[in-house]
Simulated scan of single mutants.
Amino acid sequence: MVNRCEIFCEILIAILLPPLGVCLRHGCCTVEFWLCVLLTILGYVPGIIYALYAIVFVDRDQYFDEYRRPLYYSA
């Protein structure tokens, strides 16, 4: 379970650099990350919106395995 401080820091990072916030949450070689990169290239605001969605609403524990490991994992 992720605590509130981690989510708050990820949201702040996602507002400044949307792909970095998604990378910290889901990992660098995931569909969520590359979709966020694409949306950020197409427009900064869509990248922020998707990053916030990916951080707050997408459950990473459901998709977590050894091949899609995020940068950190709090057990």
Rank of each mutant, 00 (worst) to 15 (best):
I48K: 08
V58E: 04
F8M: 07
Y67D: 03
C29F: 15
T30A: 02
A14W: 15
P18S: 14
C9F: 11
D59T: 02
I55T: 15
Y44V: 03
E6Q: 10
L35N: 06
Y63I: 01
R25W: 11
L52K: 02
F57H: 13
Y73A: 01
T40E: 02
G21S: 10
C29V: 00
Y63W: 10
L24V: 08
L16W: 13
A14E: 15
L42A: 01
A14S: 15
Y73W: 06
I48T: 12
L12P: 00
Y50M: 02
P19R: 02
S74I: 08
L52I: 10
I11C: 14
D65Y: 02
I11F: 13
S74Q: 11
H26W: 12
V37K: 04
I13F: 02
I7R: 03
L39F: 15
I13N: 00
L38P: 01
V56K: 08
I55V: 10
F57W: 03
I15S: 14
L52Q: 01
F8A: 07
L71S: 03
L24D: 01
T30W: 13
Y72E: 05
E10K: 07
C9N: 08
H26G: 00
D59P: 06
C9L: 15
N3P: 08
L35A: 07
T30Q: 09
L71E: 12
R60P: 06
I55Y: 10
V37M: 03
F57C: 14
R4K: 04
L16C: 14
C28S: 13
V22Y: 03
C28I: 09
A75P: 15
E32D: 15
L17F: 14
V31N: 08
L16S: 10
A75Y: 04
L24K: 07
I41H: 10
P18I: 13
T30P: 00
L35M: 11
P18C: 08
F8C: 10
T40P: 04
L17C: 05
I11H: 03
C36A: 12
F8T: 07
F8W: 12
A51W: 08
V22N: 04
C9T: 04
W34C: 02
L12N: 07
V2P: 05
A51Q: 02
W34L: 06
L38C: 00
V31C: 02
Y63P: 01
C9I: 11
Y72A: 08
I55C: 01
I49C: 01
